[in-house]
Computed example of a mutant assay.
Amino acid sequence: MSVNAYVRARKVAETPRSTEFRLMTEITAQMIAARDAGFSGVQLAPALHRNREVWGAFRTLCIDSANALPDELRAGIISLSLWVDKYTSQVITGRESVDELITVNRTVMAGLANENGAVPVG
């Protein structure tokens, strides 16, 4: 099967939740790899940028009144995304470690896995 055929098949079979899980898995793995390679501060910027982008997208989706998630969950996601944004700046400037961002992503992934049966990244 060609790569393009695989991508098309995955898009048809994936639910929004499984797409979110896959994306969080990729980004979290990228942050872990960068950390394990000894990167810190600004060296983590590529991985942190992707993480910040996805959390910004989650925030935008939750702000939309047409979003079907419960209001309390939407508010929690918005709050968490704002924390991720602020904390990411602290990681980039070397004041904090990337570990807390990894932990938050893993926690979200575990929640997504409970919904779709996927296995979180270790």
Rank of each mutant, 00 (worst) to 15 (best):
M1C: 09
S2C: 07
S2A: 12
V3L: 08
R10V: 10
K11V: 08
V12T: 12
T15A: 02
R17C: 13
R17F: 08
E20S: 06
F21A: 11
L23I: 14
L23M: 10
M24T: 07
T25D: 12
I27D: 00
A29D: 07
A29C: 14
M31E: 08
A34F: 14
A34K: 12
D36Q: 12
A37L: 12
G38D: 02
G41S: 01
R52D: 02
R52N: 11
A57R: 12
L69M: 04
P70T: 11
P70D: 13
D71M: 06
R74I: 05
R74P: 06
G76E: 13
I78W: 01
I78S: 02
L82P: 01
W83E: 05
W83K: 07
W83Q: 06
V84F: 01
D85I: 05
K86H: 08
K86L: 07
Y87S: 00
T88D: 01
Q90F: 08
Q90P: 13
V91K: 02
T93K: 13
T93A: 14
R95T: 01
E96S: 14
V98M: 04
L101V: 02
L101P: 00
L101W: 01
I102D: 15
N105Q: 05
T107Y: 03
T107N: 08
L112C: 03
L112I: 00
N116L: 06
N116H: 00
A118M: 15
A118C: 07
V121T: 10
G122Q: 15
